[in-house]
């Protein structure tokens, strides 16, 4: 009887099981797990296709600008840093500081989008699009899918800046860090390794 009561109490403490151990709302972690698996499969697809067509991928990669990609990496990791500091500020009750940090994180997210659009525009000017070849199909698919997540991440950060409970901040910033994490792997995969 005592064991049954203890089990019930444990279930009430951790209604989402193992997901209850993670910061923020567990449903966000269900989404994050889904996203990392999806991006993982896309990365594998890119890597395997590159092994099949090494010449095509080397030629495609040579037309990318690693400096713009690197600049965007710096922008996104700095945005992630500010978002992480926002949670720390909110936890000690500095709501204004937390909102300012979140606003700065969102602004850098917009900078990321602007740089990515400039990069796409340069490709369009060079006559490169989704159908140019397999490399650019995957390039636009991976970076475009990630870009949609950046847009969604900014919207989520704006929502949690308005409704700024600690759990909301942890939930919103967790999604933003996932977007950041995915880019940190995507950048070397697409732009750097030969």
């Amino acid at each position: 009887m005592d064991a049954a009561n203890a089990m019930n109490a444990a279930q009430e403490d951790r209604p989402w099981g193992a997901l209850s151990d993670l910061p923020g709302h567990p449903m966000m972690w269900v989404l994050i797990l889904t996203e990392v698996v999806t991006f993982g499969l896309l990365f594998m697809t890119f890597a395997v296709t590159k092994a099949i067509h090494p010449g095509l991928f080397a030629a495609g990669q040579a037309q990318l600008d690693p400096v713009l990609g690197g600049l965007n990496t710096l922008v996104l990791i700095t945005s992630g840093w500010l978002a992480a500091l926002a949670v720390e500020a909110r936890t000690i009750g500095k709501r204004g500081t937390a909102r300012l940090l979140l606003g700065s994180a969102m602004a850098l997210g917009l900078v990321f989008i602007a740089i990515k659009i400039a990069e796409y525009a340069a490709k369009a000017q060079a006559g490169i699009d989704l159908e140019t070849d397999t490399f650019f199909t995957l390039y636009f698919l991976l970076t475009g899918f990630h870009l949609l997540h950046v847009v969604l991440g900014i919207i989520i950060l704006a929502a949690v800046a308005l409704s700024d409970s600690i759990v909301n901040l942890k939930t919103g910033t967790a999604f933003w860090h996932m977007v950041d994490l995915v880019w940190v792997v995507m950048y070397p995969l697409i732009y750097l390794i030969g």
Partner: peptide, 8 residues
Amino acid sequence: MMMDFLKL
């Protein structure tokens, strides 16, 4: 990122 930003 996982350890210090995502707080794993």
